[in-house]
Every structure is written in structure tokens, then in C-alpha cells.
Design a protein around this nucleic acid. Structure first.
Length: 1175
RNA sequence: GCAGGAAUGGCGAAAUGGUAAACGCACUCGAUUUAGAAUCGAGAGACUGGGAGUUCGAAUCUCUCUUCCUGUACCA
């Protein structure tokens, strides 16, 4: 009787599929249990051994729960919209639906072969129109909702409109855009429909807004913050730039507080909760307004007040004469334009030939910082190029628009319209002054602080260099320095700033703010340690309580007042909030952090210069993607305003396009669709060319939804049976029965994406009464990743090093690829010189160069004029001479596919070595065909390193082979046996024979039942049999409940070893044992269960009941320790009292031997555990 | 920098404050076998990263240092 795992596994997989063994019921007397795996994306590479880890764990749990009498929902499906299929479509022209379908087939085959107990009747795919109909429906609900902070939940937008109708918006406490203007009910009712829509958009939970987004040109799409890793795209590693675009956004920030609070109600790991907490980034504190003092008020500390129109720089005294001269002699175009601009003809004041910094601009509106330039004459006195000057001016927040002489003279009307448009987009400086209550200049700086208690410790303020007030408050004296600083910091990339956090830099603006309580002047600095994007872009610096402020103050010799009682701040700031009293702080003296914070906020509120405030780091989520393969928005545009398609006309299905690329105009791929407009007459999609608002044909939205749209609610869809899915995303009964996911297993990489967004959507659906739970996943476990061992080959690259123009440049030399066998002295990314290697390269170039060498040079060095123009005029000899000593080298490491490595052993013991099979590697890529391989000892070695298992790293191990060789049960057991579920572990098949051997041994225990060698008489279990069984039941049950699957595999091994030694043939032992094993190794369990004579599947057989009585012992082999060290053991009855044990132990020979006549000081007796003798 | 986690044989790992190293791989020897594989049996091997403390007793609790991993990035 051999254990034919392949046949057995096939047999039971077919049986389960045919009998729908794991189909969940929506009507059951059993308690419910919902086990879910994180939604897989069906990639073209199929499953590798890392993927099933979590699936096996959840499957064990699901099967265990069935044995425990639960009605288990354990579904699976596919997050089938996504980038890879689209990238593939762009490359090959294959429709993403086709490749996705093929990928799903592979996935399904592989999943089936591992024997998962999924209820496939409930499968969902996000790319199915019957599914995304409801994704679109949820989007519409979000659009039709606003967030009311008073009731603290989302409400239908109609309730907001009603309130606008009767009271305007001044009393509304809503999550909304920042730029809301107050209006009364009368004003609201007078607004046009379009205007009303525009305003409502600022309140809706999903809204259109111009946002700065992470644009990835290579992928042609926008990426979310969490899709960017180290400044490049997570998928593909392409560069990402900031770009302004009109996008759909989700007002997730409205839910920041509830997303944070909700974490306390769910059973997730602390690590995961911490990640979400950090991402939400709540800080409680106060917003404080500091009045900006005019320099004259600062009593000699500032400089004389400069009139607002004097915007010239330090050279004004020289330039002003030229400006006057130019005003007197305008060109025709300038004169014509000036006639139209002067005297506030456009509603704003323009000045002509005006000094801005060191420039003279043609026309400027200072209030709106708009400069109008008329080109066409030579500015002989002006050396800088116009472009550079524009950049400098725009750094100062001026907007520069240019016109040509001909434009002004030929069509002055359109020039004026353009100027008016530009003016309309500019904010007025004066309008800000109206809002403020500053004493003199009328400006205020608002800051956010988490430490309002330290307000008396403020000795300066720091603004981000990008802060809008900087250019306005900077005094003439400081102007040059401030401008230089802004320019310098603008050049520093984000990465530079990050890498270099130690350098302290900043500049004084020359202006002072007024302390709200002491009225002392506080110098205002700018510094790039303050981020424009967080809070208000300004901080009140408290150097004694904040290390960065402290460092800044030390560096620039700014006073550091100490406001903490009895704290030494001579070396560093005191940043703790605990155990300290405030001092030198007027009315806050003697208070602790909490009391002082409260009192300071009260005082600020009293004088109207601040209030308690909570800040969140969480930003609204961009929801648009410029992609084809995603859910279309159910949106068309009327008067530029988005309109929702009525839900009864959903789904709005994805149209066909001939190509999956953006259009020539840069529109998303849907812009290519011929049939992509909305006909409001028939409520259906119509030909794009028909668009005409008067006839009711409107353009449809061209963006599609991001990947997280479909995955934010799929767990509800599983609750509904296929047949009822038409009427709702899930019926009320189904939602009520299944509630939410009891156990969710997946990787921690989804911590800030999927897991946060789904919580947001669920809370929203809950608010609007569509679901009855406000958290999707009650318990969540992160499985660790299985790592692969990659192989790296080292490629030697050659460069020409040229110096000049103050820069060093390395020009790559394009010779055939050269690979070197790995040795530990090879370093990646470091350039070095080597004369013999250089000679080789020079010889090669010499040989390559023909007499007319221009084209060849381009072939070798690339078409870069910096080097080609340099070398081309030289003769061949001169070129070689010139290049001498200028060649440098560098190593680059590349992934080789591990299948190109030599193997040792065969069959089950096959192992990859470090050695590369050069011929296979050469044939892998056409560009390696002629590559040179430098071996050592006739071997070409790779560097093996453990990293994430991934197709792109060519280190994947496919589970198919394991299944074929050892069977799915062995794979399942082995993956669990590798170690704790959450741990990261490299894949190594070395131990798989161990678990496979265990299964064979298990099988052997049952052979007597199969080969007829067992007599018909039932064998009664022995005491030992029962002890082994019940010990195992207890341990396995505990282990599964604790998700400690590795230890239960050991427990099975121990049980089988013991039962084999006991020669157990009792059905009363072997039957329950199968049920214990069944969640882990279901195929063998089913087969043996059947062999024991059962007709029904083992899957719902009751889990054996643990009975303590079989483990009860009458005696215990007590470890006897002396001073905590165990010396020997002594068998004593368990019913002995403490005193009796002590007596018995002390009377024992060995005890006396150990004591050697000493009297023990103390004897510790823990009955049933241990005896410890001290002395 | 901050937050979280980890460190036990050659390897993966186990151990409610109570006999440290279970279980598996690899290794050695023996049996069976023409040989190998498979199977069976036997065996060798780590005193828990370093230091201190609490305790009758510490892998486990506290402090500290070292190394590694993960997350996050000047968050006011």
C-alpha cells in the first residue's frame, strides 16, 4: 500500500469541486465565520512558493473552524484591473482582458492544485462589469455625500443643499476645501446652477480639484504617495515628477479621526496599527497667530520702512535712472499697451518700467504680482537672458507673461483679454491685508504648534522658504541674502534635503513679529527645515524645547530662553512633556504640560490670536488614473461640471480603444475611444463625435479609477451568493448575516494603501446605512514573506572621464558586454582606474576607428556633442592620445535567472550552486550574445543574495514542481513548518523531505486498515495511545487558535512517532488523529478517512474533544535544583503536600550528597513543578 | 533621527518566570540492498549576542550596549 500522493490529491480535488464541499450557506443554524485572504492580482508570472504561505494559513484556519462547527465563508477572487496587464497590452497590443483571463486560468490551476477549501461559487473579479457596476455605484454615493462634523458622519448632499437654502454656509461644520467663501441663503439661491455645483464640489466626499500629483511620465499615470518608493515608481522604478492636474480626489481626511479611533476596536498587530497611526499623523496643539511688525515699530532692530512700491534691489539707485529714461522713450508697442493699462483701466493699478529686484520690467501690477513684458527690442544694458530673469522673478512669486510687439500692435484686444485672465488667476496681496488685523503691515503669520505651553519660550520664528509672505516681509537690507537662500534651497532636491538633515541653514528676513503676550519683537527667519507642505509652513521656534529649533538658534546665535523649571538646557533642548514645570512664563509659571497647554490656549482665544487645533498628516487621496484598464467613472460633463449617470443605467462599461496609450494631446487612453460620450436622451453611450451640449450629448470622463477602488469593498461582495448579486452589491440579509471579515490574512505592504482605504469606504458605507459594520477586518494577521536567493553577475563598464565647465562627466563607452566572475573585492558603483584594462579599451577603439570616424564615434560614445564635437576634429592617433589616462571603470551588478545556475544533486536533493552556465546566460538576452566572460579557475561565479522573491529578480521557485515531487500536502505542511507565520524566511527546500517523511509515516499507521491485515475486532486504545492523542489534541487546538502552525506540525510528528512506537492500531485513536491533521494535510486525511470506511468528507467531522483525564498523572518526576541549577530528578506522587515534598526531598540521599552537610537556608516547593533548595 | 521587531546547534526553529534546547534538515555509524534510492535503528553536536539588575529561580521581566531586519522621513 503505497502513499500515491499525486493520485490521492487529484482525486480529492475533483471530489471537492464536484460536490461543492466548501460552499458556504447564507442560511445556517451554525455560527458564522469569515476567513479571507488579501485580494490577489493575477500576474502573468503565476504563483511562486511565497504566495501560498498566507493562503495555507487561512485555509488551515477555515478548515479548523468547519471542524469546530462553524458555517465558514472562505472565498477567493481576483483584483483583476491593474497596471501590469495594461503595460503588457501597450507592448503587445493584446487586450488586457485577454491576458488577464489567461493569467487567472493559471492562478486557478495552481490554487486548485494546493487543495484550498475556497468557495469558488462566490468568486469575484473587479474587472467584470457586473462587479464594477457597484464600484461605480459606491463612487456615486460618495459624490452625493458630504461630511458633517457636527453629527460626525457622512450625510446625503441633499441635507447640505437644504441647509444652504435656509441658512447659507456660515454655520456648516463640514469637511471641505480650504478656499470656501461664506455666503448667505439669499446669495446661495441667487447663484447659477453651475455656480452651485462648483460650490457643492468643495463639500462632496469625492470631488474634482486641481492637485499637485505624482506624475510618472514613463507609466503615463499618476501615482499615490504609497506607490512611490525612494522617489521612483514602485512598479518599474521609473522617475516621478510633481505636476498639477485636475483629478478626482477622495475626502479621506474627513475620516482621519475615526480611522485613528477605530484602530482601538480591531484586533490587528501593533506594528500595523502603528504604521496607520503614523500615516494619519495626528498632532494636537494650537494654531497661533503672530502679528508681523513693521520694521519701524521694532525700534531700531529692523530697518526703515520701505514703501510697498519700492521693489527694487540693492542696485536701485543705479537702475532707476535707466528706468526713467525708458519711461520717457517707450517703443510703439509699449506706448500702446500702457495707454490701455494706466489709470486702473483693467481694475488694477499697473506701473511701467518698474524696478523689481535688479531688473526693470515693462509693466507690473504689484498687488497681484503680475509682470507684463513686451519683447522685440534689445535691452542693451541687460545682460541676463530673459528666461533666467523670468525664473528669478517667479521665485519671488511674480508671474511673468510676455507678448510680442506684433501682438500688441496687431490685436491689442486679445492681449488685454490674456492679461485679464492672468490677473483673475492671481491673488491680491491687498485682499489678504483686509483679512488680517496686523498693526501696521497688516500681516499675520499663523503657525501650528503642539506645545502651546511653551509659548513664552519663543525666541524666533521660522518660515519655509516657499512661504508666501517671505517676499513681502523681507526688508530691503536682507533682500539679496533671502533671495539667494531661496534660490539655493529651491535647487536642493527633496533627496538632498533628506540625505543632509544635519546642515543648518537659514536667513533672517529683517522683519519681526510680535509675541502675542509679551509684545516683544521676535525675529522672523526662513529656513528649509520648515516644510511648506505641513501645517502652515511656519513655526514658532522654541529652542529650549525643540532640538531643531535649538540647533538653529545655537548656529545663528539666537537667544535660547529657558522656560523649564530646574532643567539644564546648556547642551540640548528639553523636548519631553513629562515631569516638568513651566517657568519664566508669566501666567503659566508652575504649571505642568497639560495645565499650561489648556491655559495658554484659553489666553490665546481670549485675545483672538489662536485656538486649540488638531492637525493630521493624512491627505486626501487622488482617485484618478490616466489609464485604460480600470473602472470608468460614471461621470459626464455639462458646462464643465461633472454629472453622475443615474444608477439605473450602470454599469458604464469600458469602451474599446485601438491603442492603450495616451492620445497625442496627452489625454488618457479613453480619449481614443470612438464611442465614448453620453447621450442624455437615451441614457446610453454614444459616438464621441456627437458631443453637443444643446442636443444632450456630453463628453464622458476619460480617467479611470485606481486599483484600490475595486479592492475597497470586495469583501462585501463575497457575502452575496452569485444568484442574488444583480439587485444590490450585497443584500441586507447577507450583509447582516456575515457582518465583516473575522480573519484577514495578507502582507504588511498593504498597511497604508488597501487597508486604510477599505476602512474609509466601509465607514462611509456604514454612515450612509448601506452596511451594518464600520470596520471591514476584525482580526488581521500579516504573513511574513518568503524570500528567494538571487544570483548576481558583475558587468564591467568603461567610461571616458572628462573635466571642464566646472563639472566632471563620465561618458560611457559602448563596447561589447564584459562580465567578470564574482570575487569579494568587486565593488558596485565605484569608479577606478586600471592601466592594463585601459590599454585593452584603447586598442579596441584604435582598431575600430576608420579614417572617417564621425559615425563610429557616435556608435562608441553615443550621440553626445560634449564628447563627439571634442573628438571628431582629431585624427585617430590624436584621439587615442587624448583618451589615454582618461578611461575609468565601474562594476554593475545584474540579476541572472537562477535557472541559469549549475545544479548539483538530482531529484529531491537538487541544489543550485553559485556557478553560472555561461552558454545559457548568453542565449538569454540577444545583447549578451557576444559578451565576454572572464572566469576564474574556469568557473564563472555569481553572487548569491537573499531578497524578496519576485519575477523581476529572477529568483522565483514555482510550487508546481514541489507539488509534483512531494504533493500538495507536503508543500502545505512544509510552508507552515518553516517557522512562525509572521516571520520573513528564505526559501530552502532542504527540510521538505522531513515533512514528506512524516506523511509517509502517517500513512503507514493506517496500512493495517487497508491491506486487510487487521482483525475485525476493534482494538481498544491503550493508556499511552490515549495520552498521545489527547496531548496532541490539546496542543494542536492551542496552536491553531494562536496561529502557531509551525509548532503543530512538530506536534503531529511527535504523535506519529509515538503511535508508531506504540504500534497503535486503534480506530479510536487513528480516526480523531485524521481530523486533527485534516486542516493541514487535507488530501491524505480525506483518503484515509474514506479507507476507514467513512462515506462523507472529513471536512465537517467534529474536532475531537480534549479530555484532561487522559493526561492526569499520579506522580511527577520532580527536578531538584540547588540555587536554581537542576542537579537530579526525583519521582514523587502528585498528591503530596508541600511539606511532605520538602521532607521527602531533604531525606533523599542525593540531596544530602549535594548539600555536603550544609543546612539549606530555604526550600522552595512548587507542587507539580519544581523543588529548589537554597543554601 | 524616530517607531517597531529580532538575536538560541552547521541550518530552520521549540520552550504559561520553574528540568533549556522539543521537532525537522544536514552530519556520523549500523541494519537491509549488487549499488543507489527508500526504510529501520543508533549517535554526535549549541548552556540562549555582550554587560548589569529584579528573583529562591531569567531565553522569558527591567536597564544598558552591539548587530541585523522592517516601517517612516526635518510633522513643528
Amino acid at each position: 500500500m503505497k502513499y500515491n500522493f499525486n493520485d490521492i490529491e487529484k482525486k480529492w480535488q475533483d471530489y471537492w469541486a464536484k460536490n461543492e464541499t466548501f460552499k458556504a450557506s447564507n442560511n445556517s443554524d451554525k455560527p458564522k465565520y469569515y476567513v479571507l485572504d488579501m485580494f490577489p492580482y493575477p500576474s502573468g508570472a503565476g504563483l511562486h512558493v511565497g504566495h501560498p504561505l498566507g493562503y495555507i494559513a487561512s485555509d488551515i484556519y477555515a478548515r479548523y473552524k468547519r471542524h469546530k462547527g462553524f458555517n465558514v465563508l472562505h472565498p477567493q477572487g481576483y483584483d483583476s484591473f491593474g497596471l501590469p496587464a495594461e503595460q503588457y497590452a501597450i507592448q503587445t497590443g493584446q487586450h488586457p482582458a485577454v491576458t488577464t483571463e489567461a493569467n487567472i486560468k493559471t492562478y486557478r490551476r495552481q490554487l486548485d492544485q494546493i487543495g484550498f477549501s475556497f468557495d469558488w461559487s462566490r468568486e469575484v473579479r473587479t474587472s467584470n462589469p457586473e462587479y464594477y457596476k457597484w464600484t461605480q455605484w459606491i463612487f456615486i454615493q460618495l459624490f452625493e455625500s458630504w461630511y458633517n462634523y457636527d453629527s460626525n458622519k457622512a450625510e446625503p448632499i441633499d441635507t447640505l443643499i437644504e441647509r444652504f437654502n435656509v441658512e447659507g454656509n456660515t454655520n456648516i461644520n463640514a469637511a471641505c476645501d480650504d478656499d470656501i467663501n461664506p455666503f448667505t441663503a439669499e446669495e446661495w439661491n441667487a447663484f447659477s446652477d453651475t455656480e452651485k455645483q462648483r460650490i457643492l464640489l468643495k463639500y462632496r466626499l469625492t470631488y474634482l480639484a486641481e492637485t499637485e500629483v505624482n506624475w510618472c511620465p514613463a507609466l503615463g499615470t499618476v501615482l499615490a504617495n504609497d506607490e512611490i518608493v525612494n522617489g521612483v515608481s514602485e512598479r518599474g522604478g521609473h522617475p516621478v515628477i510633481r505636476k498639477k492636474m485636475t483629478q478626482w480626489s477622495m475626502r479621506i481626511s474627513a475620516y482621519a479621526e475615526r480611522l485613528l479611533q477605530g484602530l482601538d476596536t480591531i484586533d490587528w498587530t501593533d506594528a500595523l496599527k502603528d504604521i496607520q497611526k503614523n500615516w494619519i499623523g495626528k498632532s494636537v496643539g494650537a494654531s497661533v497667530k503672530f502679528k508681523v511688525l513693521s520694521p519701524t515699530l521694532s525700534e531700531g532692530k529692523g530697518v526703515d520702512k520701505v514703501p510697498g512700491y519700492m521693489t527694487g534691489g540693492n542696485n536701485s539707485h543705479l537702475l532707476i535712472e535707466r528706468a526713467k529714461e525708458m519711461r520717457a522713450n517707450p517703443t510703439d508697442a509699449e506706448a500702446a499697451l500702457w495707454a490701455q493699462l494706466k489709470g486702473k483701466k483693467l481694475g488694477v493699478k499697473f506701473r511701467q518700467q518698474h524696478l523689481i529686484g535688479d531688473y526693470i520690467v515693462d509693466f507690473v501690477c504689484l498687488d497681484k504680482k503680475l509682470i507684463v513684458e513686451v519683447d522685440g527690442k534689445i535691452h542693451d544694458y541687460q545682460i541676463e537672458a530673459d528666461e533666467e530673469r523670468t525664473v528669478r522673478l517667479e521665485n519671488d512669486y511674480y508671474k511673468v507673461i510676455r507678448f510680442k510687439n506684433e501682438e500688441v500692435l496687431g490685436d491689442i484686444d486679445s492681449v488685454l483679454i490674456k492679461i485679464e485672465e492672468a490677473l483673475a488667476q492671481r491673488e491680491s496681496i491687498n485682499s489678504k491685508q483686509v483679512l488680517s488685523s496686523g498693526k501696521d503691515l497688516g500681516w499675520e503669520i499663523e503657525v501650528f504648534t503642539t506645545r502651546p505651553d511653551t509659548i513664552f519660550g519663543v525666541s524666533f520664528m521660522t518660515l519655509a522658504p516657499e512661504h508666501e509672505l517671505v517676499s513681502q516681509i523681507t526688508t530691503a537690507e536682507q533682500k539679496a541674502e533671502v533671495e539667494a537662500y531661496i534660490e539655493a534651497t529651491a535647487k536642493r532636491s527633496e533627496r538632498d534635503r533628506m540625505a543632509d538633515v544635519k546642515t543648518i541653514s537659514g536667513v533672517f528676513t529683517g522683519t519681526y513679529a510680535e509675541h502675542p503676550f509679551t509684545k516683544e519683537p521676535i525675529p522672523i527667519w526662513i529656513g528649509d527645515y520648515v516644510l511648506a507642505s505641513y501645517g502652515t509652513g511656519a513655526v514658532m521656534a522654541v529652542p529650549c524645547g525643540d532640538q531643531r529649533d535649538y540647533d538653529f538658534a545655537k548656529h545663528f546665535n539666537i537667544p535660547i530662553p529657558n522656560i523649564f523649571e530646574g532643567v539644564d538646557i546648556s547642551e540640548e533642548a528639553f523636548a519631553s512633556k513629562d515631569n516638568v514645570k513651566i517657568a519664566n512664563s508669566d501666567f503659566l509659571n508652575g504649571l505642568n504640560y497639560k495645565q499650561a497647554t489648556k491655559k495658554a490656549i484659553e489666553a490665546l482665544e481670549k485675545i483672538g490670536q489662536g485656538e486649540g487645533k488638531t492637525n493630521y498628516r493624512l491627505r486626501d487621496a487622488v482617485f484618478s488614473r490616466q489609464r485604460y484598464w480600470g473602472e470608468p467613472f460614471p461621470v459626464y460633463y455639462k458646462d464643465g461640471m461633472p454629472q453622475m449617470i443615474d444608477e439605473k443605467h450602470l454599469p458604464l462599461t469600458l469602451p474599446e480603444v485601438e491603442k492603450y496609450l495616451p492620445t497625442e494631446e496627452g489625454e488618457p487612453p479613453l480619449g481614443r475611444a470612438d464611442v465614448w460620450a453620453w447621450d442624455t436622451n437615451t441614457n446610453s453611450v454614444c459616438h464621441s463625435e456627437l458631443v453637443s451640449e444643446s442636443n444632450g450629448f456630453y463628453p464622458l470622463e476619460l480617467n479611470t479609477m485606481p486599483g484600490w477602488a475595486g479592492s475597497s469593498w470586495y469583501f462585501f461582495r463575497y457575502m452575496e451568493e452569485q444568484s442574488n448579486r444583480g439587485e444590490a452589491f450585497a443584500t441586507e440579509g447577507a450583509l447582516k448575516y456575515w457582518e465583516n471579515v473575522d480573519l484577514y490574512i495578507g502582507g504588511s505592504e498593504h498597511a497604508t494603501g488597501h487597508l486604510l482605504y477599505s476602512r474609509f469606504w466601509v465607514k462611509f458605507l456604514y454612515d450612509r446605512g448601506f452596511v451594518g459594520v464600520d470596520e471591514p477586518f476584525k482580526k488581521l494577521i500579516n504573513q511574513g514573506m518568503i524570500l528567494g536567493t538571487s544570483a548576481f553577475v558583475y558587468r564591467r563598464l568603461s567610461y571616458v572621464k572628462l573635466e571642464g565647465y566646472g563639472l566632471t562627466r563620465w561618458h560611457p563607452i559602448k563596447h561589447k558586454p564584459i562580465f567578470e566572475s564574482y570575487r569579494d573585492t568587486l565593488e558596485v558603483g565605484v569608479t577606478f582606474k586600471d592601466s592594463s584594462l585601459e590599454k585593452e579599451i584603447l586598442d579596441w577603439i584604435k582598431q575600430e576607428l576608420p579614417l572617417l570616424h564621425h559615425n563610429k564615434l557616435i556608435e562608441i560614445f553615443g550621440n553626445d556633442p560634449l564628447i563627439i564635437d571634442l573628438l571628431n576634429p582629431m585624427s585617430n592617433e590624436e584621439i587615442i592620445e587624448f583618451l589615454n589616462e582618461k578611461i575609468e571603470f565601474q562594476y554593475q551588478s545584474l540579476h541572472a535567472d537562477i535557472s541559469h545556475l549549475k545544479t548539483i544533486g538530482e531529484g529531491s536533493n537538487i541544489k543550485y550552486t553559485d556557478e553560472l552556465i555561461v552558454e545559457e546566460f548568453k542565449n538569454w538576452r540577444p545583447e549578451y550574445k557576444n559578451a565576454e566572460f572572464i572566469c576564474s579557475d574556469n568557473k564563472f561565479l555569481t553572487l548569491r543574495e537573499v531578497e524578496k522573491m519576485s519575477k523581476s529578480k529572477f529568483n522565483v521557485v514555482n510550487p508546481d514542481e514541489i507539488c509534483e515531487q512531494y504533493g500538495a500536502d507536503s508543500l502545505r505542511l512544509y510552508e507552515m513548518f518553516l517557522g512562525p507565520l509572521e516571520q520573513y524566511k528564505p526559501w530552502n527546500t532542504a527540510g521538505i523531505t522531513g515533512v514528506h517523511g512524516f506523511l509517509k509515516k502517517l500513512w503507514k499507521l493506517y496500512v493495517p486498515f487497508m491491506d486487510g491485515s487487521l482483525s475485525e475486532v476493534e482494538v481498544e486504545p491503550t493508556k499511552d495511545n490515549l495520552k498521545t492523542l489527547h496531548k496532541t489534541i490539546k496542543k494542536v487546538e492551542e496552536d491553531i487558535e494562536n496561529f502557531s502552525f509551525n509548532t503543530s506540525v512538530s506536534t503531529f510528528m511527535i504523535a506519529v512517532n509515538e503511535l508508531t512506537a506504540q504500534k497503535c492500531t486503534s480506530r479510536h485513536i487513528l480516526e480523531p488523529l485524521l481530523v486533527l491533521v485534516s486542516p493541514y494535510a487535507p488530501h491524505i486525511a480525506e483518503e484515509l478517512w474514506e479507507q476507514l470506511g467513512h462515506k462523507a468528507s472529513i471536512s465537517t467531522a467534529p474536532f475531537p474533544k480534549f479530555e484532561e483525564k487522559y493526561l492526569v498523572e499520579s506522580s511527577k518526576n520532580y527536578p531538584i535544583s540547588f540555587n536554581g541549577k537542576m542537579r537530579f530528578t526525583l519521582e514523587l506522587p502528585l498528591d503530596m503536600s508541600k511539606d511532605e515534598i520538602e521532607k521527602a526531598v531533604l531525606a533523599y540521599d542525593k540531596t544530602q550528597e549535594q548539600l555536603q552537610g550544609r543546612t539549606p537556608k530555604k526550600v522552595i516547593v512548587v507542587p507539580g513543578k519544581i523543588v529548589n533548595i537554597v543554601g
